[in-house]
């Protein structure tokens, strides 16, 4: 049986990029230390702030909620949870109950917002319309844009100072690669541990950004955190291809993901000079901040005769 390189107990994880074996206690401590280090190094949350964590029910977001709950308690911050119900039958309905269960366990106020109530259609309906109209867009494109917009709106309405998402190292490196492949300079530039506030946008933080996806999963399992491990029925497309490519790269050349992240972080200050300044204005349809006259959500939904139905989106809360 393999032993932990730090304490000699039974090893449960091989951190190949660092060349060390870790036992259950040491991997738990290490993940928590990295979380705290990211919070401190990037000054993600200040004492007394009100923070919202976006929770889907998956391992990353539920783990992030648990880590933030502990951090916020020690830093005298208030934590609330927000879930976007995209309307994916057999997937989101199952994970929603897991979010509620965890929020109750941690005594965190939980709010839910939905595509159906806000935009007038579920993602299942939008995916069907897109197929029928042959838009050529993947459901993930609609989901990503609408979810981002809805989370920002909910966070603003709830009066929070920060909105935390649970992007881990793998998610961040995938986003870097995706923006390279798409030559999307402005989206690439916006990546980072925190996204500063601009008028209408709630500042975002990513405290799991330097923790590999597998370490988040091992942490959740060892801590006995209840998570939803279902697979989104719409997963696929270029995101999946990039993810598979990066996982193969990491298997053959451990540390590749961290190296891509480190290189990007070193390049980022130099990119600032090349990013053109732009003014934000209100979307003429929904009033959300945008750099053009119409936000991306409204632009995508207009084709189906859908759009923001109500100014106020928070309908109910549970504790």
């Amino acid at each position: 049986m393999l032993k932990c390189d730090f304490c000699g107990r039974h090893a449960v994880y091989n951190r190949r990029y660092a060349g060390v074996f870790l036992c259950d206690r040491c991997i738990i401590k290490s993940v928590e230390r990295r979380f705290r280090r990211a919070m401190g190094k990037y000054k993600l949350v200040s004492p007394g702030e009100r923070v919202a964590v976006a929770v889907s029910g998956g391992k990353d977001s539920v783990t992030c909620m648990h880590l933030l709950a502990d951090h916020c308690e020690r830093k005298n911050c208030e934590l609330i949870a927000v879930t976007v119900d995209e309307g994916i039958k057999g997937y989101r309905d199952r994970s929603m109950s897991i979010v509620r269960e965890n929020a109750k366990l941690l005594d965190i106020e939980h709010f839910a917002v939905s595509f159906r109530k806000t935009f007038g259609a579920t993602l299942d309906q939008i995916a069907m319309l897109a197929k029928r109209k042959k838009t050529g867009l993947n459901p993930c494109t609609y989901c990503g844009v609408m979810r981002r917009s809805l989370l920002n709106q909910a966070a603003r309405e709830l009066g929070v100072d920060k909105l935390s998402t649970a992007h881990n190292l793998d998610d961040e490196v995938q986003a870097i690669m995706l923006n390279y492949v798409r030559a999307d300079f402005s989206r690439l530039y916006r990546l980072g541990p925190g996204y500063p506030s601009r008028e209408g946008f709630v500042p975002r933080i990513k405290p799991l950004r330097e923790i590999p996806e597998k370490e988040v999963a091992v942490y959740a399992l060892l801590k006995g955190i209840k998570v939803h491990l279902g697979v989104c029925p719409y997963a696929g497309g270029i995101h999946t291809e990039i993810r598979d490519f990066l996982n193969q790269l990491e298997t053959n050349h451990p540390n590749s993901k961290f190296m891509i992240l480190r290189m990007f972080d070193r390049m980022k200050p130099h990119l600032a000079r090349s990013v053109p300044e732009f003014e934000l204005c209100e979307c003429k349809i929904c009033g959300e901040p945008t750099s053009s006259g119409m936000c991306k959500s409204c632009e995508l939904l207009r084709e189906f005769g859908l759009g923001l139905k109500r100014k106020t989106i928070i309908s109910g809360k549970s504790r």
Binding site: A11, V12, N14, G58, L229, A235, G236
Partner: peptide
């Protein structure tokens, strides 16, 4: 029944459970 590293070696009659962790899009 116990979480292990992938570097452990298998013996006859072992029971292996594999948990896929990549779930998103």
């Amino acid at each position: 029944g116990k979480i292990v590293t992938e570097d452990e070696r298998l013996s006859d009659g072992d029971s292996v459970e594999i948990l896929p962790i990549v779930t998103g899009g």
